[in-house]
Amino acid sequence: MDRMCFCTEPIGDIRCRALEKVLAAMTRPCTYVTYCCHQTVTYTERRRHEEACRYAPYHCPFEGCTYYGLLLYNHIQDLHASGSDDDEAAVVVRCNRRSAVTLEKTMPFRVLLHRDGASMFLLLNGGDVLAGRSLSLVCMGPRPTGTPR
């Protein structure tokens, strides 16, 4: 009975330049072609393009909501800002350029909808850190209207 043995020692970073060149030459349409992105990208640039693609749909940040699309501002305004659940509606704040916003310790985030009808931000509660509280502000839209990269 023959026994197979395998070496488990790492062999380091070995690159195959020929395969890298083949992959760099391959192109494909953007993953978001169904959302009107008609850009063709190389295999090696695909991830960078799709992370910044202005046609990439949004996931709704609310727990249990399955919305996935380009009109997140409208979705949140219509379903969550005036929603039937008082706790959920309290998470959405309509704001102007200067607005006071309160974020409680137990709240994971707050959605800020600007009155311009397009600008939307997530105020994320990162929790306690050594120096105090950790907060992040993330712009969720609108995406730039220039030519996608």
Rank of each mutant, 00 (worst) to 15 (best):
C95L: 11
L70G: 06
A56N: 00
T40W: 04
F62E: 08
E63H: 15
P108S: 12
V22S: 13
G69I: 09
S82K: 03
K21H: 13
P29T: 06
R46I: 02
V91S: 05
V91K: 02
L71R: 15
Q39W: 13
A81G: 03
N96Q: 14
D86E: 11
H38V: 10
P10D: 13
N96K: 15
L19V: 09
C65T: 02
T40P: 02
D87I: 10
T31G: 01
C16T: 04
V41Q: 08
V33I: 06
R54G: 12
C37V: 04
L70Y: 10
C95T: 12
T34N: 14
A81V: 04
H38L: 13
T44C: 00
A81W: 07
F109T: 06
A18T: 11
Y32W: 01
T66A: 14
V22C: 12
H75F: 01
I14G: 01
F109W: 01
S99A: 12
H38C: 11
E50K: 00
R47I: 03
Y68E: 10
D87A: 11
E104F: 15
V92G: 06
T27L: 08
C16M: 04
A56R: 04
S99E: 13
D86T: 05
Y55S: 09
Y32N: 00
S99G: 03
A24Q: 07
C37P: 04
R54N: 09
Y58A: 09
P61S: 07
T66H: 15
T102C: 09
A52E: 15
H59M: 10
A18M: 13
V22Q: 13
V22K: 14
L72R: 08
R97K: 14
M26C: 07
Y68D: 02
P108W: 15
E104S: 13
A56C: 07
T44A: 01
N96D: 15
C60N: 00
V91G: 09
Y68H: 11
C65V: 10
L72K: 00
K105Q: 15
Y55T: 05
T66Q: 15
V22N: 11
R15K: 14
R15G: 09
C95K: 12
G12L: 10
E51H: 09
R48N: 02
Y67K: 03
F109L: 05
L71I: 07
R54K: 13
E88A: 08
C37T: 10
C16P: 05
Y32L: 00
G69N: 08
Y73C: 07
S99C: 11
P10S: 12
C30V: 04
G64R: 13
T27A: 00
R54E: 05
P10G: 12
F62T: 04
E51S: 12
P61D: 11
E45Y: 08
C53K: 02
V101M: 07
I76R: 05
L79A: 01
M26Q: 09
Y68T: 09
G83S: 00
Y68R: 07
H80V: 08
E20I: 11
T31N: 06
D87K: 12
L70E: 08
C53L: 08
Y43G: 10
E20Y: 14
E104R: 15
